[in-house]
Design a protein around this nucleic acid. Structure first.
Lengths: 395, 395
DNA sequence: AATCTTTGTTTATCTTTTAAACTAAGTTTA
DNA sequence: TAAACTTAGTTTAAAAGATAAACAAAGATT
């Protein structure tokens, strides 16, 4: 039996304070009276919580300009400049860093190419990016409240990098190292999971409690949001859906399995297929950029290759929908730029393969945060951690 | 923003009472003092809760026979005979009904063949089974506290049967009908989900918070337990993993998809394959029972067919593990009887296809409740509902 | 000017948890 | 065998927090 958390007055207060806080954050500007009506909490309770949060700089008030037939309400605002968060998208050949306010608005953006994947070198570049962002953070009551990092690899529950195949890293405790460098709380999460959270909090999946984020880049990673929470599995490595078999007799994947989905529906798959089909004159080095340009110009062979890609993506999405019955699927990362050409084949495959109920009830969307989804997700993990520490959010 | 539940004294009390109750249920016989030490709740708090539960007949006390150097403790016992639950496994050609105590111990078992799938007729037989079980229930403070029914079909969140393909039922509100007949709370759940809960509460998956139950019968259904709770998806129809594609170019399934897992790894698949391979003299009507007998006698062809079945099951399990990173997978329903012949091929496939971390950390088990898992799961859903109503369990 | 409305605070009450004191009932020690 | 020690469980007083009701503040309406 797991040790269950007992209840006391403290817990009650934290729950209610968190409710009042989120109401102000999401519905503000709003008056104390409105919060009381909306949440069912007593006016006195709301007043107590609010004055605490004003003392803590999380909330400020501005008198309303007009009344509705009685005393003018005092409007409450979430102070999204009480502190700032840093979100890092650590890619295989780039680092993208964002400084955001507590609402996830981007204040500064720093981007660098990575010329090496050597751990020590990457770490130094990472430190430089973080230091730049810290220097740009405006003065605020809480300063830089955390650093979130999205990494393309498997992260366990202790936030150690177990394996990042494309970076060739194994067992790196980056969290502790960065923390010791800057003395700011660090959160590390898998790239697809970060993207999922980014889209869930700020993007296409706001207010959607069951969603699957499908990151289609060099490979395919997925982030699972269930009942509003990230699901990371027993040891932190769920969501390896890029490696489910869609062709039991297909060719060997580097993961050990055969006929993995990402062999048919990823950036690598697209480029290989394009090369094989000789879609361009010089077949030696095709890039995504070239394919995008050619597609826009109506290159038939390129369109055909993209069509096939879309169909293959659709096959995998069918599996995801049958498994999770999610409210929404969000396709992100680099291949989402081809949305206008792959959307139709995806939907055709789904129409053909899904049962009636699933067809009706699943939204297929493309990322709306684009290249920022991972870094924003990472930043938001840190913000959420900060709020929990300050008892404004529950576990 | 979803309306969040506010906290008050009532909530705190319910949380703590539930903790004390579960401690007695799982660790009993146990004294008040021990509960206090174990849970961290004050002795006075524990005493208050306990005397309430004694008044409510959920707990009784017996003085201990010996002390440990001081006043003798009074030992507290969960009164598993405070009421009884009914669990029904409504199959395609049978009804299995169980009467259990509040600990899931089977008190009575009733089993009937179904000769028709006509809704009205099945309902009458179901009523007869339930009435028999009600009549056999011993006298108790709460009587029969609920009826749980596991059905082979899609159930939505309102517990309406949306579609039960093998029974050819659509949109049946069986819950309300049974409730109006017996005036006892009724809970309806999908067959695989019931099985998952059964194994999670009473079977191979006790104390395992992330597990996938794979019901391999005529088709394949799955039940998903995540963070200790059943996950049923946005509209209640998650877990259709029998219909994920393992061969994109495979043959058409009745669900509309191509190359579904259950076309290769279910009872139907096994029987067809056996027929094709002519494993028996008379090829016309092979049964599971015959295959079992022949396998025991060492029939090479049968063993080969079972070997292939195991491999195909393994392919699907690889997908499940890559997706969920569960702590345990439990294989149940009729095909689990072949465990001794399919276990090795399953493990071989997993060893070959899974990455190192998943191999190390995922337990593959066969159902230990056997033919009772669905009915026991259904009974336990009702028990859990009853406890929630009585504030002994949290939502 | 009097009355009505709406907002927000103050006050007294209620519930529940907790620490500390206390009673109960045993064992160990001198 | 009596005194000291242990352990179990109850009683009591205090503290925290939510709430309803009364109240004060500040506007609109009649």
């Amino acid at each position: 039996m797991q040790k269950l958390k007992t209840g006391d007055q403290n817990l009650v207060k934290q729950m209610n304070k968190s409710i009042v806080f989120h109401t102000i954050q999401k519905k503000g500007p709003i008056s104390r009276a409105q919060i009381s009506k909306l949440t069912g909490l007593n006016k006195a309770t709301v007043s107590t919580m609010v004055s605490e949060m004003i003392d803590e700089s999380f909330v400020y008030e501005i008198e309303a300009t007009q009344s509705s037939g009685g005393r003018k309400p005092v409007m409450l605002y979430f102070n999204n400049h009480a502190g700032y968060s840093i979100g890092i998208d650590l890619g295989v050949n780039y680092i993208l860093g964002l400084l955001t306010d507590l609402n996830g608005n981007i204040i500064e953006e720093v981007s660098q190419d990575l010329t090496t994947i050597q751990y020590g070198d990457v770490k130094q570049q990472l430190y430089a990016v973080i230091q730049t962002l810290i220097n740009k953070a405006p003065d605020s009551p809480y300063g830089v409240i955390g650093i979130g990092i999205g990494v393309p690899g498997n992260i366990n529950h202790e936030e150690t990098i177990i394996l990042a195949p494309n970076l060739k890293w194994e067992h790196k405790d980056l969290k502790t190292e960065v923390q010791n460098e800057f003395y700011i709380p660090v959160k590390i999460q898998n790239e697809a999971n970060s993207g999922a959270i980014g889209e869930h909090i700020y993007g296409a999946g706001r207010n959607i409690s069951n969603l699957i984020y499908v990151s289609i880049g060099i490979g395919i990673g997925t982030g699972i949001i269930i009942q509003g929470n990230l699901y990371t599995g027993t040891s932190g490595i769920s969501g390896e859906m890029g490696h489910f078999t869609i062709d039991a007799n297909g060719r060997k994947c580097r993961c050990g399995n055969n006929g993995c989905w990402e062999l048919y529906a990823s950036e690598n798959a697209l480029l290989e297929h394009a090369k094989k089909q000789k879609v361009l004159e010089e077949t030696n080095a095709i890039t995504l950029k070239q394919l995008s340009t050619e597609a826009q110009m109506g290159n038939k062979k390129v369109l055909q290759v993209l069509h096939t890609l879309g169909e293959n993506i659709g096959i995998g999405l069918t599996n995801i929908i049958n498994t999770f019955n999610p409210q929404m699927i969000i396709i992100g990362n680099r291949l989402s730029q081809f949305s206008s050409w792959i959307s139709n084949p995806i939907h055709n495959v789904l129409d053909e393969r899904l049962s009636y109920y699933h067809k009706e009830n699943t939204d297929i969307n493309f990322s709306i945060l684009g290249k920022h989804s991972i870094a924003l997700g990472a930043a938001s993990i840190s913000i959420s951690h900060f709020f929990k520490e300050n008892k404004l959010e529950n576990e």
